[in-house]
Design a protein around this nucleic acid. Sequence first.
DNA 1: TGCATTTACCTAATAGCTTTAGGCAAGTGG
DNA 2: CCACTTGCCTAAAGCTATTAGGTAAATGCA
Lengths: 189, 189
Amino acid sequence: MVRAGLTTERLTRAGAELADEVGFDQVTVSALARRFDVKVASLYSHLKSSQDLRTRIALLALEELADLAAAALAGRAGKDALTAFADAYRDYAREHPGRYDAARYRLDPEAAAASAGGRHAQMMRAILRGYDLAEPDSTHAVRLLGSVFHGYVSLEAAGGFSHSAPDAQESWEWTLDRLDAMLRNWPMR
Amino acid sequence: MVRAGLTTERLTRAGAELADEVGFDQVTVSALARRFDVKVASLYSHLKSSQDLRTRIALLALEELADLAAAALAGRAGKDALTAFADAYRDYAREHPGRYDAARYRLDPEAAAASAGGRHAQMMRAILRGYDLAEPDSTHAVRLLGSVFHGYVSLEAAGGFSHSAPDAQESWEWTLDRLDAMLRNWPMR
DNA sequence: TGCATTTACCTAATAGCTTTAGGCAAGTGG
DNA sequence: CCACTTGCCTAAAGCTATTAGGTAAATGCA
């Protein structure tokens, strides 16, 4: 009997692919076993539980997204940086909807602490350094950016913008324009 | 044997309560049957499927949220309206996290068409009438508002803002201030 | 190379959720 | 008061999650 060569790593990556194909909430230990043509119980040597699998996929997605965002950000500043970062988010969500959902999976505190979540916040702070905000405004602004990016991307993914003109791309550019202007014209009344 | 008096309505409402207690993704036909002290199969005379149940809860949540938002909006305009509407969203999400998640449940096109989703968009347009935007700006702005509200509320619900200062309420007020200013100072460079 | 150990995957079993088919008794209308 | 509708039930099949314990493949060491 030839062994399948399962490892936690491979299972996690395959789980991420599965998520993109069938949706994160459809990712199941059984489906993953089928994909490797292996019995379900066999996965339990590599994964603690179904939750464990989902958590690992979430952590993978957060890493990937942080890496992509970091690459997009390299060498840019100001609106250029803002746009590059935002596009990295949106592109990732469009190319990897299951992984993007995974990145929104609620992690337990220890997993969250070990995640790339901190890098995401750091990068937003870096972007805001190109604008002139003092505390606590910059924290507020980090939260606003996070809200807009996540909100837009998830509404778009849910099909919220697909059945009306103008198209989603246009509103996205408009939104980034407005955000940039808001951050530059500071403070305004 | 005394009958339990099940109806689709009652099941949907109980499902919504269940969602708030244990999370929308934990809402299950079995759990609902337990709550009514009735056998699982009995629910299938009132519900087509587990999906059907979730869809009904989603529609209920969208209605409730639209009603609350409409009430909050009544007699207000400008920033006052913006704040009242946004607070209605946020308060609903905080008081009814399961229902709020339900309202984000992806509906099939027919369910979506029959939902209160349209009212939500209409109300945002009504708010924007207090600012001076022409098409396509007002559509872009509707999308931005939706993104910010949903994004903020869902990040807050996920605990994203709970472990750092300043507190979430402050950032929320700041955000609404900024949005209002952005919409008033129009256009800006 | 040959044996011992580890490890990868398996069978078997339990338990929960979903869904369908068919039955009986409680309520309802003529 | 009898016929009918309808509400809830039992039974059963299929899928997922998870654990316990077994066997064969890979690995390490003499």
